[in-house]
Simulated assay, not measured.
Amino acid sequence: MDETVVVVGGGYGGAAVAKALDAHADVVLVEPRDAFVHSAGSLRALVRPEWAPNMFFRYDRLLSRGRVVRARAASVDAAGVTLESGERIDAGHVVLASGSGYPYPAKTRTDVAAEALAQLRETHRELAGAARVLIAGAGPVGLELAGEIKAVWPDKQVTIVDPAERIVPAFAPEMRADLHRQLDERGIGLRLGTRLSAEPPVEPGRARTFTVDGITADIWFRAYGVDVRTSHLGPDLAAARTPAGRVRVTPHLNVEGFPNVYALGDVTDLDEAKMAGYAMRHAEVVAANIAARVRGEEPTETYTPSPIPSVLLPLGPDGGVGQFPTPDGPLVVSAETVAEYKGRDLFIDRFVELFGTEPLTEAEAASGAVPAAEAASEAVSAGRR
């Protein structure tokens, strides 16, 4: 069996599965960005620009045997990947890990770390001069953004609007009550059951005073709207796509109908929140099953979403709410626990271990001097099709 594994997408799940398979197969990770982006740190990076380089990690030390090819996939089929350049990477196994897009600043708008850092700092300057902030969307992203803003600028007026009648409705009432308490303590306004009649007449992240539906603010951010990245699937794999654009998978995380193709993370149709932690658990299952197939064995690892959702939702470095599943039901955790697990460092140490290096330095991130992954043309010229 061809031991080449091509992983499409170097986000949380893609990087983890590539690393786990590096000792077992010929791994090619296809990723257009020049550095891994720790998107869970983007909201902290917005309000604390001195911290921002911590969300970028170089790819050049992720793999020992395999390689990272900086390129964008134009078409992916069950036999490999065709890059936008027209170059082809054939593979015995394909992993779909292309993730999803989300409005800035929760996710960056560029594939270049230096540009992303410059954009975050420009938006920071806009935000710093705004007294009143409107956030459209009271999901975890909108709530976390509000908490990060208040942690740095406690005197800013922050208002969140959402058409839903309740925040985080899938979670335990005790967690929701604690969340409301902490939002009240921070002076974060909630207008639930409220749908804006029109978007504010200014680009998100740009400071300009406006009034919409009786709400006056100086800057606003959009915290809703996921764009699943599966448009590059070829006709064979596209048949497994749902109307929402996600990919149907089996308990082994195979794409339905394709025993050599796997999917993980945001692109899957699994009934669970799309979170980095889940994507990295998917990566463990996918890596074990591909390693088994490379050894000539039948895959045995399966994945079943928990009926009890979990979350760690910081409200700045020292606040937040969380819930874990247990055999006895949901376990609601304290703000101190959220801060200890996630809020204070946002899991930076975990990614130092994964990528085998510290985050980018200030000089590397600002200058664009990121040690590059090999370009697609270099991989092909070296005979690595």
Rank of each mutant, 00 (worst) to 15 (best):
G189P: 02
E174F: 06
E272I: 11
D178Q: 15
T209F: 00
V161L: 08
A217L: 05
Y224Q: 13
F210E: 14
W220S: 12
I219V: 15
K156V: 02
R248V: 12
D227I: 12
F171Y: 15
I167Q: 09
N260G: 12
T159D: 05
G189Q: 12
E185C: 07
D269E: 12
T211M: 03
Q157F: 02
D236A: 14
A172R: 02
M175D: 06
V212P: 08
W153D: 05
A164T: 07
T242Y: 05
R229I: 04
D271C: 04
V261Y: 11
P259K: 01
E199K: 14
L233R: 10
R195L: 12
L179N: 05
I219R: 06
G265L: 03
V158H: 06
P235R: 06
F221H: 12
P259G: 00
D269T: 10
T194I: 07
G205F: 10
V267Y: 00
A198H: 11
E185I: 01
K156R: 15
A151R: 07
F210G: 11
G225C: 11
V168D: 04
T216D: 08
E185V: 06
P200C: 05
L237Y: 05
G193H: 10
I188Q: 01
T268W: 01
I219P: 14
H180Q: 08
G245F: 04
L179S: 04
P173I: 12
V267T: 09
T216W: 08
R181D: 13
P154R: 08
L253W: 04
Y278P: 03
G225T: 10
D184E: 15
Y278M: 10
G214T: 06
P169H: 08
D269G: 05
V152C: 02
T209M: 01
V202R: 09
R222V: 12
Q182A: 07
D155R: 12
A207G: 07
P154K: 11
R241T: 14
I219M: 12
R241K: 15
Q182E: 12
A279E: 10
A207R: 15
Y262C: 00
L179P: 00
S197G: 14
V247D: 02
F171Q: 08
L192W: 13
L237M: 05
D269F: 00
D236P: 04
A238P: 01
D271A: 15
D266L: 06
Q157C: 08
G257T: 03
E185K: 09
K150T: 12
V212D: 01
L270F: 07
I167A: 04
V168F: 03
G234Q: 10
L253R: 04
K150F: 03
L237I: 03
I167V: 15
V249P: 12
Q157H: 04
V267C: 02
G189E: 14
D236M: 06
V152K: 13
L183P: 00
L183E: 01
M175I: 09
P163H: 08
M175H: 10
G187H: 04
P201L: 02
H252E: 13
P163T: 10
A151T: 03
P204S: 06
Q157R: 14
V152T: 13
P251S: 06
D213W: 04
N260E: 11
